[in-house]
Write a protein that binds this DNA or RNA. Structure first.
Length: 461
RNA sequence: GAGGUUGUAGCUCAGUUGGUUAGAGCGUCAGAUUGUGGCUCUGAAGGCCGGGGGUUCGAGUCCCCUCUUCCUCCCCA
């Protein structure tokens, strides 16, 4: 190769016409359901101020935020900004060279939006947002550096009806996309806090949930071992062990937890919330197999405070395809406390991969042209264009080959773009005010006059 | 951030222990067919073997660095 092969940056992709047809199928399904449930669309910019984003996603999350370099020569006058290059680490340097970043998710920009425009928003405010987000993660299966999230959030209402409705949305979208065997897992941060409280490890809540989250991957023994290494007492481990046993049995988990958490006010509140949500969703048609309490579900985002959801297709080979949860004080960080919120997000790119791997797409036979005109030269093409405009006036997809090249070539092109009919106005047809029409499926061909053709089209339309 | 893996024609890939002029299929282009696609046949073009450095008489092949692909951990959608 004489030149460097061009390519998109690491972890970022192009989408051709075929891929766009499939992606739009996913987006339009999600959008349709969101709107049916009364959500309104908004968009926010690709970049936010760096300070808006940092500290919301945990330590790991902060590392994965794409920072955008300031414009201008920021090293030119270091004294002005108080920058001493001789004694500075990269963290301190960052503040001086970057004050914008690409959004990491859609929830935090939305919280910023709500605080900024709260005076003109109907509260509770239900919005949906379908836009790309960026994470400086290492790409791998189902993981990209640029991917689309499809969020729906309700702010300004603490009612659990919102949780139930979001579950109904998850259920409806995934059912419409014909995804078999998806499971909505639900948990509540208050339950996790309650368990930690009863086990006497409230202070190590994070390391507790991180270890517990790995249960289905590494098993009970290893989870307990990891907790032991983190310095949990024997007594604590014994209690946690009981919880794990109950969780793995998946039978009477609810009644066990109600007993186990009876001494914890927070834990009991979490239980009440989850019980209500599961029961109500069930009454509204979400089956028990689809919606399940999973007390090992933790989720990494720092801002969740109540119910948390995650959707997986067990055995599909893909990670979670949707997630969400309640965040009761996200707007407080931006100076507006007391505005609760809850939301969900579909990972469109993972759904895309999953539908592709399981061959779940309907066929998108998109013929660009119903009538495709060949180009025989200047005078002939003008007549073709006149007819084409008449057709377009009747909302018929049609067009002409722009150059008067060899007919064979034009035919090959018409075949490639899957035109239904090819129309010819050459010198012969021009003289007789006629037009050749070839059906590209059957290969049949006939000639009719221009007037007849227009008449026929008008009748069909 | 840690570990592994991949890179050869537009695409998918061969290329033996280092040894002449790096191959195939598909695609592209031209012709068989002067105004008609798919099928067939004939022919042609197309490569600094990801990039840089090194070992060697000699490197697609061995060594180092870097980028990239895919995967695992971490974390996540």
């Amino acid at each position: 190769m004489s030149q460097q092969k061009p390519s998109a940056p690491k972890g970022m992709r192009d989408f051709g016409p075929e891929e766009m047809a499939r992606r739009n199928y996913i987006f339009s399904t999600i959008r349709r359901v969101y709107e049916k449930f009364g959500f309104s669309p908004i968009e926010t910019p690709a970049m936010e101020k760096l300070e808006t984003l940092t500290g919301k996603y945990g330590e790991e999350g902060d590392r994965l935020i794409f920072k955008v370099l300031n414009s201008g020569d920021y090293l030119k006058e270091p004294k002005v900004s108080g920058l001493d290059l001789n004694q500075i680490d990269s963290k301190k340097l960052l503040r001086h060279i970057s004050e914008k970043a690409l959004r990491y998710d859609l929830t935090v920009p939305f919280a910023r939006y709500v605080v900024q425009y709260h005076h003109q928003l109907p509260i509770p405010f239900k919005r949906y947002q379908i836009q790309p987000v960026w994470r400086a993660d290492n790409p791998q299966k189902g993981r990209y550096r640029e991917f689309y999230q499809c969020d729906a959030d309700v702010v300004g209402s603490a009612s659990l009806i919102n949780e139930v409705e979001l579950i109904l949305i998850l259920h409806e979208v995934l059912t419409e996309l014909k995804i078999q065997g998806f499971k909505i897992y639900i948990n509540n941060r208050k339950i996790l806090a309650g368990i930690a409280e009863v086990a006497g490890i409230s202070k190590q809540l994070v390391s507790f949930t991180v270890a517990l989250d790995k249960l289905d991957k590494i098993g009970k023994e290893n989870v307990l071992h990891e907790m032991q290494q983190n310095g949990f007492s024997e007594d604590s481990l014994k209690k946690i062990s009981q919880v794990i046993d109950a969780a793995e049995l998946k039978k009477n988990t609810l009644s066990f937890l109600k007993k186990f958490l009876s001494s914890s006010e927070t834990g009991m509140k979490g239980m009440d919330e989850v019980s209500y949500v599961i029961k109500t969703a069930h009454e509204l048609g979400v089956s028990n197999e689809t919606l399940e309490l999973d007390i090992t579900l933790a989720r990494g985002l720092d801002y969740y405070t109540g119910c948390i959801f995650e959707v997986k297709v067990p055995g599909s080979g893909f990670g979670s395809i949707a997630g969400g949860g309640r965040y009761d004080d996200l707007t407080g960080i931006f100076g507006m406390p007391g505005l609760p919120g809850v939301g969900i997000s579909f990972g469109a790119d993972r759904i895309y991969d999953l539908l592709l791997a399981h061959k779940l797409y309907p066929s998108f036979e998109s013929t660009r042209y119903k009538y495709f005109f060949l180009n025989f030269g200047e005078t002939e093409s003008k007549e073709s264009l006149r007819l084409i405009q008449i057709l377009r006036g009747k909302n018929i997809r049609c067009g002409i080959y722009p150059d008067a090249v060899k007919i064979k070539k034009q035919m090959e092109y018409a075949d490639k773009v899957k035109a239904e009919y090819v129309c010819t106005i050459g010198s012969n047809e021009l003289l007789e005010r006629k037009l050749g029409i070839k059906n590209m499926h059957t290969g049949e061909q006939h000639t009719i006059s221009w007037d007849e053709f227009i008449q026929q089209i008008t009748q069909e339309a």
